[in-house]
Amino acid sequence: MKKAIILLSLLLTNFVYTQDPTLKLGVAGLTHGHVGWILGRETKSDINMVGIVETNQDLAKKLSKEFGFSMDIVFSSMDDMIKAVNPDAVAAFGNIKDHLNIVKACAPKGIHVMVEKPLATTYNDAIEIQQLSKKYNIHVLTNYETSWYQTNIKAHALLKQGEIGKLRKVIIRDGHKGPKKIGVSNEFLEWLTDPDLNGGGAITDFGCYGANLMTWLTNGKRPNSVTAVTQQLQAENNPKVDDDATIILTYDNEMAILQPSWNWPIGRKDMELYGTKGAIYSDNPSQLRLRLSKGYSDYTEETFLLGEREEPFNDPFSVFADVINGKLTLDPFNVYSLENNIITMEILQSAINSAKNGRTINLN
């Protein structure tokens, strides 16, 4: 009996020590409209939200009542939060310009960071973030909603399997009616339509999706050239920024057309891949169509109806925790990766410069 108790004790001790430690997560900012993803996240053992940084006390109190977190964990600065709760990682949910300052505060202390897309407001800020990440050996991930789409994963797999032949053209459309029309909060709208705090309007808010996906699809290729035009079709709602853009990327053998807009009549995040033998249509998070050419204009079509991605890829915070704990190693130039998002920011910066100056930007 005594031996059995000792054995059980050893087994339980081993079980405790083999469990992944709960990640202490800080949240930097509450003004981003997507912050509900972490505040309302179902209880899991992988992450424990230990601190929040937000200077807008009224907003913090409002969200405290809505989501049930204590105001005792709300701090007025990154330094105060870090000193008080010593987080392992921080998720950024404020304006995009703050991303660099958040990494500056976290990196020297070995605190990993995940930001909402895009990585930064400028290419120079993105490079500085990359340098800090390398110097202090921290992970910096960028979260995109399209990272959770099983249809995009299926499209990528079909492309790599050669189902549509060699890739020639990609069309990616992202956006909605516009932040004011869809009713985002005043706190979100204030910086989302500020060219300094957001880097631009629709060209950055939704242009980053296409640049990120194209960089992933091509396994880290930089385009040869970037050409962009922007318009302001809702001056009354977006007086300081563009709200419609078209970005053309050329590569040695491919072309991408990105169409980010705050003027779509319906919300959309869809992608079309055209190869030498057929086409893939990633229509939405759950439907994908594969068309294969038959002669001049005929084709076969197969429709795939897909569910959510498997764990941990159905939850960006689970991905973040698993990367930090060493359970997950992401593929090079994956959509979350810093190397992908540096190229994404180079594309966005070039697109902004192209639209501003009315000329094509040659990268190579």
Rank of each mutant, 00 (worst) to 15 (best):
A4P: 06
I6P: 02
L8S: 11
L11W: 02
Q19H: 09
P21E: 13
L25F: 12
H34W: 14
T55D: 02
Q57A: 05
E66S: 12
F69R: 02
I73A: 00
S76K: 12
M81W: 09
A91I: 15
I96N: 01
H99C: 00
A107D: 03
P108G: 05
G110C: 07
H112S: 11
V115N: 00
A120N: 03
T121F: 01
Y123C: 03
S133Q: 10
Y136M: 09
N137S: 12
L141P: 08
Y144K: 05
T151C: 07
Q161N: 13
R168I: 13
K169I: 13
D194I: 01
G199C: 01
D205S: 15
G207L: 07
T215L: 10
T230I: 10
T230R: 10
Q231S: 12
D243S: 01
D244C: 11
A245V: 09
Y251Q: 10
D252F: 12
I266V: 14
R268I: 15
K269A: 13
M271T: 15
K277T: 12
Q287M: 05
L292G: 06
S293L: 11
S293R: 14
G295D: 09
E301K: 06
L306N: 07
P316K: 07
L328N: 08
F333C: 10
I342M: 08
T344M: 08
E346G: 05
S350M: 07
N353E: 09
A355S: 12
R359W: 11
I361S: 06
N364Q: 14
